[in-house]
Design a protein around this nucleic acid. Structure first.
Lengths: 122, 122, 122, 122
DNA sequence: GTGGTCTAGACCACG
DNA sequence: GTGGTCTAGACCACC
């Protein structure tokens, strides 16, 4: 995985894990890959992954059974959705609204750009 | 001026200046306030403003007459619009698209959120 | 290191770093000395080195792994060569051509002067 | 006249005046345009032209008859040539030699670049 | 430890 | 007065 955005890497990893959970790839109650495995997978320092997991644990998205491993917590999917949504509203929406206002961009134009973006990924 | 976002202050100042130009408050060919005056105005260190202005100069948005002052460059408004748009496409659009996809949010919902955001400001 | 020319120190540092890369003393993918170490080495303020590194990063010559250090980027050598060459063509060639024209100096004479210059260094 | 290079404007004006004299457009003993006229012509602050002229006077290239005007001094052409040549050797040659060395550029390549440069002007 | 940002203040060349 | 550079030193987030 590569990390481009200005966000801290541990936050990007958080997004990545949340997305897995939201998409249902990692289900509630299931055991996740170990911190070490994740670190290898993401090519990142284990401490960094650790930090992410601690934060997700505090949010109740993950739960940590000592000596056993990390698990997706009860209601973790819902909480992950809430977390992502709140972060989006707090961090991104204001920027979007500002930019649209200054550039006099309307909803239609924004949606056009977003669709372009989505197509480009396919 | 207050600085909230995660962006560095000098980048926020850049947005601020570009917005002025885009809105036509500072017109092409006109002289801008001096770096020092801007610094006082924005309650920021002159070096920080300088750094912003250097970047905008490299983008052709500002031009510098030695010993005289900073001016909005020829075609500066257009370039400022392009810059803001490109930054938006590069930095923000991917985040928006990602988030919408993961949260299965459709255009209507996004626009709803944005309108809420705009109302909240009034 | 001593700094003679009219160029700003941070630009001379840029030339210095590029030259290291071009000469192969610092290879692509390798980690460079930290900003602080370079500053000590060159007897210069760390901020000054930072400024240079930021510019080289924007040119794709250096790349930055957060919290780890600065590395010579992929294709960094080629880019460094291009950068130096372009700077030379942009800044120096016109001066050379102008001077030769006004002073009615021909190629042979120029080369003579350059060889004198090179000898003087030995 | 436009001023691009990093040289101070008053120095560029000096080059400009010297070139006129070397080329014989302004002959020894002849009266030059007034400082004010030059300033208008070059779109520059009269003080700046003044400064240039003072320096050229110190070099014996110009002579100033108070209340009458500026004249090209006796032997001014020869002195102008010397001045330009010395400046070139002092300021530009070292940079050229350095760059050629780092980029492993030989004389033939340099001459090729210069000829390109000269053609581009025609 | 790393880079990155910001401040404060000095100094310079230039106009 | 203007922009531009540099220093010194602090503080931050990140790994």
């Amino acid at each position: 995985m590569e990390f481009h955005s200005r966000k801290a890497i541990y936050e990007q990893i958080g997004d990545h894990i949340c997305a897995k959970i939201v998409r249902g790839e990692w289900k509630e109650g299931e055991r996740m890959p170990s911190v070490r495995d994740l670190a290898v997978l993401l090519q990142v320092n284990p401490n960094t992954v650790m930090r992410t997991c601690m934060e997700l644990e505090e949010n109740g998205i993950l739960s940590n059974k000592r000596g056993v491993g990390l698990f997706v917590g009860d209601g973790g999917r819902k909480k992950a959705i809430m977390l992502m949504k709140n972060e989006f509203i707090k961090n991104d929406l204001p920027v979007i609204a500002d930019t649209m206002k200054t550039l006099e961009m309307d909803s239609a134009e924004l949606i056009g750009l977003i669709e372009d973006q989505l197509k480009r990924r396919k």
